[in-house]
């Protein structure tokens, strides 16, 4: 049985290693356009109206027609902005930020309370029933708020890139 477990683990590790070797996860975000490599890109990388927007490591925004794009690496996590999502780029997010912050803080408090309860139960042998429902609820509040905040930040970055692609600079 032990030998079987070891074999499975070795098999799993070798598969993971070969997948990692074949994929481009180990390289920094890059794209290939017209046989030209653009590497060390900054996030976000996105396509809107058949145009690819990228930001180089130096901070310059470049645009290419999407038909000229040969390859976009996986670490770019590139996004395709649909016409509906284009309208969302300009929305105000102050209320959204507030709700996300409240949700994050509430979720964190729930998780903290649950961890403290768990420690109390662990110390007391008489109390042998512990429900992790509070922690699950807490995580359920935290994860969506973090994702939503990340999306707000990405939208802001995308808007900035679109404006910079029109030849406008942002100065301090």
């Amino acid at each position: 049985m032990q030998l079987m477990k070891l074999l499975i683990i070795v098999l799993f590790l070798s598969i993971m290693d070969s997948i990692s070797a074949q994929s481009d996860w180990r390289y920094k975000p890059y794209v290939v356009v017209n046989d030209t490599l653009y590497e060390n890109l900054k996030h976000p990388v996105f396509i809107m109206d058949s145009v690819l927007y990228i930001r180089t490591a130096e901070g310059n925004v470049l645009t290419f027609p999407s038909r000229d794009v040969d390859y976009i690496s996986k670490r770019c996590f590139y996004d395709r902005i649909t016409p509906q999502e284009k309208n969302r780029l300009s929305r105000s997010v102050a209320t959204g930020y507030y709700l996300n912050a409240v949700s994050f803080i509430g979720g964190s408090l729930l998780v903290r309370e649950n961890i403290m309860t768990y420690h109390n139960y662990a110390k007391n042998l008489m109390l042998n029933y512990y429900s992790p429902l509070g922690a699950i609820f807490g995580v359920g509040f935290i994860v969506p708020s973090v994702i939503a905040t990340y999306n707000f930040i990405q939208r802001r970055r995308q808007t900035k890139m679109i404006i910079e692609s029109k030849g406008i600079r942002f100065v301090k």
Binding site: L89, T159, I163, G167, I168, R169, F170, V171
Partner: peptide
């Protein structure tokens, strides 16, 4: 017109809008 604009300051909350969203 944008051709007359050189730059915006950071944190100026510039919104790029489609005509559709702007009119809505």
């Amino acid at each position: 017109p944008l051709r007359e604009v050189e730059a915006f300051s950071n944190r100026s909350d510039v919104r790029w809008m489609t005509k559709q969203e702007f009119s809505s």
